[in-house]
């Protein structure tokens, strides 16, 4: 079982990211679970979302405390502490940042496997808005695999309709532009 914790700010779509991944994994025949950190929705406030993907049925209803992968949608969250909490030593940090891997590591204090992409820039250019949830899925798929890239297309189409293609383009651009250092 792979456990992923998403860090974003209210309105950035962290919950949607986790949901799209779960839907794609289930469509592949896997078992998956996606859920938000429950609470009143507050735009701009730090939020978390959780994702489990497994080949076996998942029998757990607790939050994720020791993730295999942490995904950070908002660059400003990197330095505030907390994103690396519980992240397994052999785990992967996937971050949205205009900085390079060394600087990102310095900001968040995690020195393990790190993947970085400037998702805010890609989202601005491809979608016209700095909402990075779908863009960051490209980075997540590049860095952690989890499911086939193609599997995310159908849930994306279903969720975004007319603007699905733009999101798909942003996701693919992030997939190719993500820099990973072991």
């Amino acid at each position: 079982m792979i456990e992923v914790r998403f860090h974003g700010r209210g309105g950035q779509g962290a919950v949607t990211s986790a949901e799209l991944m779960a839907l794609a994994a289930i469509e592949e025949g896997k078992f998956a679970q996606a859920f938000p950190s429950f609470g009143p929705e507050r735009r701009g406030a730090p939020v978390q979302a959780f994702l489990r993907i497994s080949e076996e049925p998942i029998r757990l209803r607790e939050k994720i405390y020791e993730p295999d992968v942490v995904l950070v949608l908002d660059p400003s969250l990197l330095a505030t502490g907390g994103v690396k909490n519980g992240l397994k030593p052999g785990g992967t940090l996937v971050a949205n940042s205009s900085k390079d891997v060394t600087e990102v590591r310095g900001e968040c204090g995690f020195n393990g496997r790190t993947a970085v992409v400037d998702a805010s820039k890609i989202a601005e250019e491809e979608l016209g808005v700095p909402i990075t949830n779908t863009t960051m899925l490209g980075a997540l798929l590049k860095a952690a695999g989890l499911i086939d890239l193609a599997s995310i297309k159908a849930p994306l189409d279903h969720r975004f309709g007319k603007i699905a293609e733009k999101n798909w383009n942003a996701l693919n651009r992030a997939y190719s532009e993500t820099v990973i250092e072991e």
Binding site: A22, L23, I26, A32, Q33, A34, F35, R61
Partner: peptide, 10 residues
């Protein structure tokens, strides 16, 4: 509530 109502699963 939430633990089931807000979870996506197969």
């Amino acid at each position: 509530g939430f633990i089931l109502t807000h979870v996506i699963e197969p």
